Amino acid sequence: MSEPIRLARRVAELTGCTRAEAEAYIRNGWVSVDGVMVETPQLRITDEVVALDPEARKKPVEPATLLFHKPAGFDAFNGIGSAAMGIAPDTRWADDPHEQRVLQRHFERLTPMVPLEPEASGLIVLTQDGRVWRRLTEDLATIEQELLVGVEGRLAPYGLHKLAQGLTFEGRELPPCKVSWQNETTLRFAIKGVVPGQLRAMCAQVGLDVTAIRRQRIGRIAIGKGPEGAMPPGQWRYLPVGERF
């Protein structure tokens, strides 16, 4: 048996590249050991079969942004990591149209964006990309969100008009929004600057109790639909680099 050496050294010897290039190839998911992709340059190996993917590129891998259909019932914005939410390679949506290769690094240091209350379900964004972070932090008040709100009760006179304009929340006047009936028990809101608790308070002011909230869209980015319908709760897809909110 050979003496154990670092995987990066073996890749450098096999390909004639520098050690730094070998480490980049490994971290970017282009190297397999006995047929299994490995992303750890410091892995110690002996006589295992090491191979570099023929399509390997030296171009750095872009930071990932994941679009997740959060189920109702847990807080995705207070200390719960991606693993606790069930975000892993095997929960990727089968109809994800993006051809991005899944890398373990895509599930590390993900920051959840655009708050959504724990009881609500629907689209949340988790990103490693500073550009996405800035867009969804600095410009969030200008980005329209679409939410479906299940309600019960008796709508007050002119209630739909009041929801669209003229209400207050936590002492501030709310800007106009678009409100319509999706069906007899569900309202559709297209609204900017919404914060957790706001839709429940708005509905209460016109005589309605909220039974469910689901976020469908943030800006131009929706949960996504495939041949079998919308992406199910608990699954995720990639946001292609360059696609804008």
Rank of each mutant, 00 (worst) to 15 (best):
S2K: 11
V11N: 02
A12E: 09
L14I: 06
T15R: 05
G16N: 09
E21K: 13
A24N: 12
A24Q: 09
G29L: 04
V31I: 10
V33W: 03
V33Q: 09
I45D: 08
I45T: 13
D53M: 09
D53P: 05
P54L: 09
H69V: 04
H69G: 02
H69D: 06
P71W: 00
G73N: 03
F74Q: 15
D75K: 08
G81L: 06
G81P: 01
A83I: 09
D90G: 03
Q100Y: 11
R101N: 06
V102N: 10
L103N: 01
Q104R: 13
M113P: 11
V114S: 03
P115E: 14
R131D: 15
E138K: 14
L140F: 10
A141V: 10
A141I: 04
E144S: 15
E146G: 10
E146T: 10
E146V: 13
L148K: 11
G150H: 01
A156T: 14
G159H: 04
L160Y: 01
A164Y: 00
Q165P: 13
Q165D: 13
P176W: 02
E184M: 09
E184K: 14
E184G: 10
F189V: 00
L199M: 08
Q205L: 08
G207D: 02
G207R: 00
L208E: 03
L208K: 02
A212P: 00
R215W: 02
I218M: 03
I221R: 05
G229D: 06
G234C: 05
R237V: 01
Y238H: 11
P240G: 05
